[in-house]
Design a protein around this nucleic acid. Structure first.
Length: 154
DNA sequence: GCCAACGTTGGC
DNA sequence: GCCAACGTTGGC
């Protein structure tokens, strides 16, 4: 089993939105490196840190679980979707997505600011300078440290 | 809103 | 295949 970190802008789609919907497809990723993870490496049963980016307090908000591995992102085919791509077709899909299920909301969201100073998170890709990937791997150790710091919400 | 870091595009 | 121009991300 592998661990991942997914970024989302909470104004767009937050962990609380996922909580309400229970399960949702993680569509709209339009970056090849992230696409390769979604298509080739992320498997059913993998765990995900749900990270809120581009907001007042960027932070790890909770945990989600992958319930369906990579399949074509059909929103790319729809000219009226958020992220249409006319070069992606049903016959030759360019973009992929997975389905995630709500697992846990942290009692205390773990802010980026905190993560930069927390022991044991050295080398985490999220903390690397200029990191822009919206889907990235995270080690089991780093995953567990963040989950522990986040705590359980009743 | 600014801007550094990065990915993508397209002319050559 | 290089690289300048451009667009986007995302923290601050």
């Amino acid at each position: 089993m592998n661990y991942w970190l997914f970024k989302s802008e909470p104004d767009c789609f937050s962990l609380q939105d996922l909580k309400k919907k229970k399960t949702e497809h993680w569509d709209g990723v339009r970056n090849y490196q992230a696409r390769n993870f979604l298509r080739d490496e992320i498997e059913k049963g993998d765990m995900v840190i749900f990270y809120h980016s581009s907001c007042a307090e960027p932070s790890a908000a909770g945990v989600a679980k992958v319930v369906r591995s990579g399949y074509p992102d059909f929103t790319a085919w729809d000219p009226h979707s958020e992220h249409p791509d006319p070069k992606s077709t049903k016959e030759n899909p360019r973009w992929y997505m997975v389905d995630v299920q709500f697992e846990r909301e942290f009692k205390n969201p773990v802010t980026l600011r905190e993560m930069r100073t927390m022991a044991g998170l050295e080398g985490m890709q999220l903390l690397a300078q200029g990191n822009r990937l919206s889907v990235m791997p995270i080690s089991k150790q780093h995953f567990e440290i963040i989950v522990k710091a986040g705590g359980k919400k009743k």
